[in-house]
Each structure stands twice: as structure tokens, then as C-alpha cells.
């Protein structure tokens, strides 16, 4: 159990980290965003609910670390037409909580909500999600060991989701 002071300090560091991640995503700073991941990072956007088994069922995104790198490299080519031109994005991050159940391995379980406004060639699209993170200190810096993005409408037919969510 953390003391009140260290808990506040940790919360402040986590909040700053999540805001920074959101800004890097909104501004398409792909390489800087990729650096936020640990070497074993897993980026998961399930389909058809929050609790599917991603090893058995289709997910919208289920990237291991090398596939995260591939996703970033594709975006960096400038020829990933769905993001050429890039979507204009702004997202709000809120309801940041340290979860009651903390992993035994020292990672920090954090959750937040996000509301993302995307303006693309197609139209304007509003996305809403619950984000569940496992964060880890690596060389004194917070990093993402996993990020799970549970879109509110992930059971429905959704438009192309080619920005970093």
C-alpha cells in the first residue's frame, strides 16, 4: 500500500504519461509514440466485447511488439493512403484510475476513458473507449507494457480505424 504522498506522486506521473501519449497520437508522432512501449509490449483492440480470448477470436488490433513496429513503419511510409492525408484528431483522456487489483509482477494497472474526435476525408467520426494499461518503469521512465482499447461500439460495424487509438 502506497502512502498518500507517494500515491499522489505516482498518479501525477501516470497522468502526465497518458496525456503525453494522447498528444503524440493526436499529432501523429509515430516514432515518439513507439518509444513509449516496453520491448514486450502488446497493443490490443478487441472486437465483439471486452473479454474475448485474443488467441482464439478476431480482434481489431492484436499486435505484439514487432507488429507495433510494423504498424508504425507503415504509417511512416507516407503511402498508407488511409492516413495520407492524416486524420485530424483531438482526444480527451479522463477518469484516470489506479486499479484496485495490481499485478504481482510490479507493473502498474491503470485505466482511463477516452473520447476521440476524428476528422478525415470520409467525414467526422467520434470514437469512445475504455483504455486499460499496464505501465512499467524502465530506466526511470514510465513505459507501456500493454494497452487494451475497448471501443464502446466494438460489437458493431465500424469505419476504418487507421490512426493510433
Amino acid at each position: 500500500m502506497l502512502s498518500r504522498e507517494s500515491s499522489a506522486t505516482l498518479m501525477s506521473a501516470i497522468t502526465a504519461f497518458l496525456y503525453r501519449e494522447a498528444r503524440l497520437q493526436d499529432e501523429h508522432q509515430y516514432e515518439a509514440w513507439e518509444k513509449l512501449w516496453t520491448d514486450d509490449g502488446v497493443y490490443w483492440v478487441p472486437a465483439n466485447g471486452a473479454d474475448i480470448d485474443p488467441e482464439r477470436q478476431m480482434s481489431i488490433i492484436y499486435d505484439n511488439r514487432s507488429r507495433i513496429a510494423l504498424r508504425v513503419r507503415q504509417l511512416m511510409t507516407g503511402k498508407h493512403f488511409t492516413q495520407t492525408p492524416q486524420s485530424n484528431l483531438r482526444r480527451l483522456i479522463s477518469n484516470i484510475e489506479l486499479m484496485d487489483e495490481q499485478p504481482d509482477d510490479g507493473d502498474i494497472a491503470v485505466a482511463s476513458n477516452s473520447l476521440i474526435f476524428e476528422s478525415s476525408l470520409r467525414d467526422d467520426t467520434l470514437w469512445a473507449a475504455r483504455n486499460e494499461y499496464r505501465l512499467r518503469y524502465v530506466d526511470g521512465e514510465l513505459r507501456m507494457a500493454s494497452k487494451k482499447v475497448i471501443l464502446v461500439n466494438n460489437d458493431k460495424a465500424i469505419y476504418t480505424l487507421s490512426f493510433l487509438v
Binding site: A47, I60, I61, H80, F81, T82, I158, Y159, S162
Partner: peptide
Amino acid sequence: GPAGFLLADDSEM
């Protein structure tokens, strides 16, 4: 799918 390396670009077309 919506975030697929191939189909996101097909669907854009």
C-alpha cells in the same frame, strides 16, 4: 478489418 494493414487502404479506395 478496420485497422488492417491491407484493408484500411482498400477501404480508403
